[in-house]
Amino acid sequence: MTKIGLPKALFYYQHSAVWEGFFRNLGCEVIVSGDTNKEILDRGVRCCSNDTCLPVKVFHGHVDILKGNVDYVFIPRYTCLINREYTCPKFCGLPEMTYLNLDKQVRLLEISLNVETGHMEAAKGLKTVSKSLDLDYRAAEEAFQNALRELEQGYKKCENSFGEPVAKERDRKRQTLAVLGHPYMIYDKYLSMKLLEKLRSRNISIVTPADLEYQTKRRHAVPYQEKVFWEVGLDNLGSAFVFAGSENIDGIIYLTPFACGVDSFVIEFIERRLKSDYTVPFLKLTVDEHTGEAGFDTRLEAFLDMIG
């Protein structure tokens, strides 16, 4: 059985099921790299230029760990999954970026996703996939169409069905905090310094952008409602204002990696508007490869003390 490696980083945190399903359908064994750890981070740091954002460095580490144990590593090329919403430029060049940064010592499979051209560019990647796996092109094409449907449905439904308005009734005994950020930051235990676990252990309940409906987030994404923007930017921007407007949220934490170009803008929009139009406490936590857990915890605790 052909072994396909899925790096547990970046897109994995939103679309793992889709791609695992895709390759299993095609009769492959899927191997996921383990949770991020120090070794993975160090490997990633070694092969990327210094000012690369932390999650992309970590992604490189995962690919580097996987490459010896699998036949191919799969890296989708996300350009645009929803009309007029774009991914970060780094996602468009991710397959080559990884390939070149790892000195071409890795065999990749790649599929391009761009809804604005009707996923036309995907054909080339699918041909390579079908050839490498020794399959009929039509089988690959069909599995791909399935994957697309799932991706689309994923956007329509909200996973935790938290819905609007946020939390029907206020749980008086428990605090509720909103945690914003890229899914590959907040759900990666290593990169997030176990932020979610730490909050839960204090009996704080947590909401994230995944708890809100797609349309709700888009409607609140001031000033980019109906406008072209980054997809993840719209998620965080919209969520920030939905949460800020809800009585049931006691505070908002935005977890951002060092050198993220997208967040640098999104957070600025959020902070400005929160200051002028809302009262909810806001904490920005920046993580880089040198961030110590102690300092991180101190900042978090100070914030939690403040909101009482």
């Binding site: 230029s49 954002c53 080559e96």
Partner: peptide, 28 residues
């Protein structure tokens, strides 16, 4: 510093230097 597209572009320079034999220096 932190320019998104150019960080991606820069990854290709090792390859270009090898293939085309031209020295490239990056100034951030």
């Amino acid at each position: 510093f932190t320019c998104l597209p150019e960080i991606v572009a820069q990854c290709s320079f090792g390859e270009i230097q090898d293939q085309y034999g031209i020295p490239i220096m990056t100034l951030i």
